[in-house]
Design a protein around this nucleic acid. Structure first.
Lengths: 207, 207
DNA sequence: GGTTCAGTCAAACGTTCGTTTAATTCAAAC
DNA sequence: GTTTGAATTAAACGAACGTTTGACTGAACC
């Protein structure tokens, strides 16, 4: 292990560059240059560029997932049937809280997640483990009990709506044309909870 | 002009492949192969790969924009201050209606839009013209009048929420884990309007 | 002092990419 | 019948890519 840990610096550089330019738009050479490492370091430490992305994704997603899980535990300890608004807050909150460490108000992490989720390449999306699925399934069940009249398909549509709003939140295209400054972290979190709690609580569409 | 119009077949092939594999994941060779054209045809008809993408994007977006504009005209002809739910329907509806022509229930077009909007490369996002901006500005103004108590920044946050939900709607990652069949076009449209009308109508977050 | 081994390094590998070139086709215009 | 010019073609171009190789480093261990 070198002094500033080449492996960690590769992860940091890759996280930033993948977020800024996408997976395919980032060359291994650009990563190693930014990390101050040799070109072969990626292959040595991670095996391949795709496995480096998987490592980056895990490092970003894991704390969010853990916080989502803990938040649901806390809710369920209080009442077996938490209201919709609190479920939304417990699910959405960590996506804003956990991504605030290090980068510009979470904008970079947000972009990274969008990049990963929207990239059509199989290798880019193959990092998910059973942990991510388990958390989502637990929330799905909790929402099902909180919204008993909502058909399963429409509930699933709304869950994806939550993911869409939280992930796409800060993509630059949508910000470009507003003369407004970028959204502050804490305010965006509250806005998202307000927006999504109202959306989730809407009555079923019917027919 | 050849019999089946090489130019159009290039547009069709590029639209499908850009949607399936992204801009960077699609080679010019793959496009010309699928179109049954020569490798040099892209350079001859469009100048470059980036300009071909711009042409594809324009062909997809223009009818949606026109329908959004017409829908708002229709609303404003009836009343100067349309309610939120009708504004949402007029804005969201065309994104589902206009993309139903040709591809699998609009899933491919939806993917194409996500691919374009979420790609960090500058060239991928430089196709927008003043028409797109004008429509968005008109809706922004209408929403501002319909929601006078909402601060501009939070309103803008919600507008982006609309775009996020409608665009990311059918990205495969989010569908993968549900045991449910893909969402049918008309049902998804109604679900989206229900979901987003409730979200837009939420009271301001406050503080 | 010699051995070991995780780590780093410069250099090269073969492939794929977007674009360019120059020759060719072929129906329409004269 | 010749000319014209848009359209197509095969072939090549140089650049950039992810990965591999084999030599080298230097502290740890015996």
């Amino acid at each position: 292990m070198a002094s500033p840990d080449t492996r960690t610096q590769l992860l940091d550089a890759a996280e930033r560059l993948f977020a800024e330019r996408g997976y395919r738009g980032t060359s291994v050479r650009a990563i190693t240059d930014l990390a101050g490492a040799n070109l072969a370091a990626v292959a040595y430490h991670f095996g391949s560029k795709a496995e480096l992305l998987a490592a980056v994704a895990r490092r970003v997603i894991e704390p969010i997932n853990a916080a989502q899980c803990a938040g649901l535990d806390r809710l369920l300890a209080r009442t077996p049937d938490p209201p919709v608004a609190e479920l939304v807050a417990a699910f959405v909150g960590p996506m804003y809280d956990e991504m605030r460490a290090g980068d510009e108000g979470g904008a970079r992490t947000s972009r990274l997640i969008v990049t990963i989720l929207s990239d059509p390449a199989e290798e880019v999306r193959s990092w998910t483990g059973p942990a991510e699925d388990a958390v989502r399934d637990r929330y799905l069940e909790a929402f099902t009990r909180a919204l008993p009249d909502l058909p399963p398909q429409e509930l699933w549509f709304r869950i994806r709506g939550i993911l869409a709003v939280t992930a796409v939140d800060r993509v630059e295209v949508h910000n470009r044309l507003a003369g407004l400054p970028p959204v502050a972290g804490e305010a965006a979190k509250q806005w998202a909870i307000t927006f999504l709690a109202a959306a989730m609580s809407a009555p079923p569409t019917g027919t």
